Simulated assay, not measured.
Amino acid sequence: MSDLLRIAIVGFGEIACRQHVPAIAKTSGAALVAVVDPVKTPPGLPYFRDLQELLRDGPEIDAIALCTPPQLRQALAAAALAAGKHVLLEKPPGSTLSELAPLIAAAHEANRTLFATWHSRYAPAIGPARKLLASRTIKKVTIIWKEDVRVWHPGQTWIFEAGGFGVFDPGINALSILTEILPQQVFVRSAVLDFPANREGPIAADIELSDEDGLPIRAEFDFRQTGPPSWDVVCETEAGPVTLSKGGRQLRDGNRLVVDATDDEYPALYRRFVALTSEGKSDVDLAPLRLVADSFMLGRRRLVEAFED
């Protein structure tokens, strides 16, 4: 392989255009060399209609970044690993938990990297929040993760289809932060999921969680918020609240602003991907996906009014 990690993006939707392309361009030791998408044709790059066409006729590549809807990722990741390529999985890593175990085994067998990414964990305030909370006694956690689906996911009809996660597509970002900053494993205790009468995925969810010591945790997810989004995690401690906001870009300790930084999540993801491939390691943490699966398993389904995009 080349010293440069040559990457092809598979699935050239909004997240690939807005985040992955500029992040790869900023990453030393990585280069975007091809794109696969059945519809979009990016300028200035070799373009292929499907993965098999890329593998057969495309330029030499070392890695695949899978940015398709989650329902498609398992088969594409399996094919890429079988072809000897490293694989980066956009979040969520798949539609089910069971489909990830064979991919982990295949990556190990092929001596290739499998990286299940949780981009919100790489937000600039997450590391400082974890360190701050390690010295505190946490008494309660409240997550408010609400946004306007029409603004943040325009035209993405797959998100409300079976396996598309609905409001858990952004909500899993909050759960990835939660499982990163708390010292103990977290469990879902109960959930109420709001399903529009004309959709297969939930538009809102209220979830009660706790750790092994009974720490009360509540998460509120909603796709129906208008105006600015709310991406907040508030940890009540014996010394006052520790608040993560703006999706993990801002941290306050009480009233004191500790971190207020710009978005560097995806460049950090790709720096991690380059490091993993050079070290011959994988990184597949499924804790956030388990919490989503448990929410669907335990959740009480509540029908709400039809939703039209």
Score class of each variant (00 low, 15 high):
F273Q: 12
D37Q: 11
R301H: 10
L178I: 02
S295C: 12
I15A: 14
V258H: 04
I24R: 04
L209M: 14
I181Q: 01
R189E: 06
D3H: 10
S230K: 15
V188L: 08
G227D: 02
E208Y: 01
P43S: 12
G214W: 00
F165N: 06
L286P: 03
A191K: 06
V35L: 02
G201R: 01
D194Q: 15
L88M: 09
S120E: 08
P228S: 09
E60F: 03
E220I: 14
I217F: 02
H20N: 04
L291H: 01
I104F: 04
G58M: 02
V242M: 01
D169L: 13
T41S: 13
L66F: 10
A129Y: 03
L66T: 10
D37V: 11
F160N: 12
G163P: 06
A106G: 02
F195L: 15
F48W: 08
T262S: 08
V149Y: 07
V274W: 01
S135I: 00
G155M: 08
D57T: 10
L88N: 10
V186P: 06
T262W: 01
R249N: 07
A261D: 11
Q184E: 12
V10L: 05
A293P: 03
F187R: 07
R290V: 03
D206V: 10
I104A: 14
L276I: 02
L89K: 08
R290A: 03
P93M: 05
A293K: 01
V192W: 05
A204D: 00
H153F: 15
T262Y: 01
F187A: 13
H86N: 03
R112D: 00
G214C: 09
R224V: 05
I104E: 14
G171D: 11
G166D: 07
N173E: 09
K140I: 01
P69Y: 10
K140W: 00
L32A: 09
A34G: 04
A134R: 06
W152I: 03
L303W: 05
L276W: 03
Q71C: 09
S190V: 07
L55H: 03
L32N: 04
F221I: 09
V10K: 00
F273P: 14
F307I: 11
R18A: 11
A125W: 03
I138F: 00
T237R: 00
V141H: 00
K40I: 15
P22R: 14
V35K: 09
R249W: 11
W152P: 09
I15W: 04
A134Y: 08
A275T: 09
K26S: 15
L209N: 05
L100T: 04
F48S: 02
I64H: 00
E180L: 06
L133V: 06
F273L: 04
